[in-house]
Design a binder for these strands. Structure first.
Lengths: 73, 73
DNA sequence: TATAAATGACACTTATAGTCCGTTGACTTA
DNA sequence: TAAGTCAACGGACTATAAGTGTCATTTATA
C-alpha cells in the first residue's frame, strides 16, 4: 500500500474518532474540502506543510499520527 | 520553527548518525543531490512520497523519525 | 421517499516541487 | 602544489502538488 493511501486512511480514521465531517476538518485546517476528500482517498501526494495543517486540526502530535499499524504494512 | 526546518534538521541528524554524505543519501533514496541539501536546510516543502524515500534510506520507521524533541517545539 | 448533508470523482489553472548542470569554498590527504 | 570530498548555492528547466469548480453519488433523517 502506498504512503498516500496510508496517510489518507489514518486521517480518515482520526477524523471519524473526533466525529467531524471532511468539511469541518477542512475548515479547521484551512484547506479546501475536496482536497481533503482526495487526500483521504489516497489521490494526493501531500506536502509536509499541508499534512501539518491536517495533523494540527486533528489535534494529534506527528509521532502519534505515524504511530499506527498502518505505517508498518 | 517551521515544519520544513524541523524535518530538515532531523534528516541531517540521522544522516550524520549513519555517517554518510548528502550525495550518498540522495543516491540511496533516488532523489536529487541538490534537493537533499535544500531539504536539510529547511528550504523545501517536501512531499510525503519523497519524505518516505528519505526515511527509508535512513532506515528508520516514520514514527521514530517524528519521535524527536524537534517536533514538540 | 423525498430532502438535505456528506462524500466522491475529476478536470483545470497556477504555483511550486523536484531535476539537472555547474560553481564555489572549506577541509583533507598526498 | 595539487587533487579529492563534501556542503551550499544558482539558474534554467520539467514535473507535479496546490487549490478550486462542478456535478455525481452516497448516506442520514424528516
Amino acid at each position: 500500500m502506498s504512503i498516500k493511501v496510508k496517510v489518507g486512511q489514518r486521517i480518515k480514521e482520526l477524523r471519524n474518532e473526533i466525529g467531524i465531517s471532511q468539511e469541518a476538518l477542512a475548515n479547521k485546517a484551512e484547506i479546501d474540502r475536496t482536497y481533503v476528500t482526495d487526500v483521504e482517498n489516497g489521490r494526493r501526494n501531500i506536502s509536509i506543510e499541508n499534512l501539518e495543517k491536517l495533523v494540527n486540526a486533528l489535534e494529534i502530535p506527528f509521532k502519534d499520527f505515524f504511530n499506527s499499524p498502518n505505517f508498518n504494512k
